[in-house]
Amino acid sequence: MQEPRPEPPRQDDGSACVLEEAGDPYQWVARIYDWILDPWLRPLHRHVASLCRREGASRIIDLCCGTGAQCRRLYWAGFQPTGVDLSPAMIREARRKSPAEIALLEGDATATPFATASFDCAVISLALHEKPGPARLALLREAARLVRGRGVICVSDFLGPPPQSSRLGHMMRTSVERVAGRAHFACYRDYLALGAVPGVCAELGWSAVLEATFHRRATGVYLLLPEPSDR
């Protein structure tokens, strides 16, 4: 059954979850993003789908959905995904590649137009490490708002520096993050200094449970446990 399209995003109030570069930082890479990264990301996407199934989710919001690869994996697995991303280039690519039944919204993932508790699960894939501190926290708070009381927040992102991650995995991902640009790399270093996903969650008083690791322990999939007051 085709899901109704979401309402248009409300006007930007200046809090949009973006990097510091001017314009759309993904406008030149969106068309080749999946070609380069899909083989690397596919195991993560499959594991996220298996976690959503294990947790009994049906309606899933993918915050910072990029080219929609995770949404498509969820759709093919029988879920009802909705994707949100601020990058016009990424959303164009997601719409080009995705079935029409997947609702894809260009907008701020930290302030979506959806009602509280609209979804069973919120997914954030490889987005926290590239955001400035306030945007990381705003993204997590929005995820907690969007899922129902017993819903799930699933985050895929880099593990902390060694010994949390392997030295080889750490060196490989750091090399890639340097190429992504100065602002991107600064956010990545700050994210690691905090202790990666568990450290970011600790700023909110949340817990994070590591479910699986990938890419020579460079990357992990977490289930987050917000405090009841954050629901």
Score class of each variant (00 low, 15 high):
F79P: 06
P163S: 09
H215M: 06
F185W: 08
R145I: 11
P25T: 12
E203A: 11
A135S: 15
I60G: 07
Q27I: 03
S98F: 11
P132D: 10
R173W: 11
C52W: 07
R73L: 13
T174P: 07
A212E: 01
L210Y: 02
L44T: 02
A30M: 11
A57K: 04
A212G: 03
P226C: 09
P8W: 01
E20S: 14
W40T: 07
G14C: 12
S87W: 00
V147W: 02
W206H: 01
A202G: 01
L41H: 00
G199Y: 05
E227R: 00
L44C: 02
P99D: 01
D12L: 08
G181R: 14
W35N: 08
M172V: 15
A117Y: 06
R148T: 13
R10A: 08
R53H: 12
D13M: 08
S175K: 05
W206L: 00
P161R: 15
L146I: 07
A212F: 00
Y188S: 11
W76H: 04
A111L: 13
A218L: 09
V209L: 02
E21I: 13
W35V: 14
D85W: 05
A218F: 07
R46G: 12
L192D: 10
S58C: 09
C121K: 08
L224G: 07
T116A: 14
A180Q: 07
G181H: 13
C121N: 10
C65W: 15
R150G: 13
M172S: 07
L210V: 09
I91M: 06
L204Q: 04
Y191Q: 02
P9M: 14
R92Y: 00
R92T: 00
R53G: 06
P228G: 07
G68K: 00
K131R: 13
R150D: 15
P161S: 15
W40P: 03
W35Q: 09
L204S: 04
A111E: 14
D12Q: 08
S87I: 00
G14L: 10
C201T: 02
I153F: 10
M171Y: 07
P113L: 11
S207W: 05
I61F: 08
S118K: 03
I32N: 06
P39S: 11
A196D: 03
E203Q: 15
C187T: 10
L74N: 01
A143W: 10
V155Q: 03
C65S: 15
V200C: 04
L139A: 10
Y75M: 10
A69P: 05
A115H: 12
P228W: 05
R189K: 15
C64F: 14
E20K: 03
S87D: 01
T82W: 00
L168V: 13
E211H: 02
C17K: 04
V147Q: 04
C64I: 12
A117C: 08
E177R: 00
R217C: 13
D34N: 04
A135H: 13
T110M: 08
V48N: 06
F158Y: 04
V84R: 01
L104P: 03
R150Q: 12
D108P: 09
D12K: 03
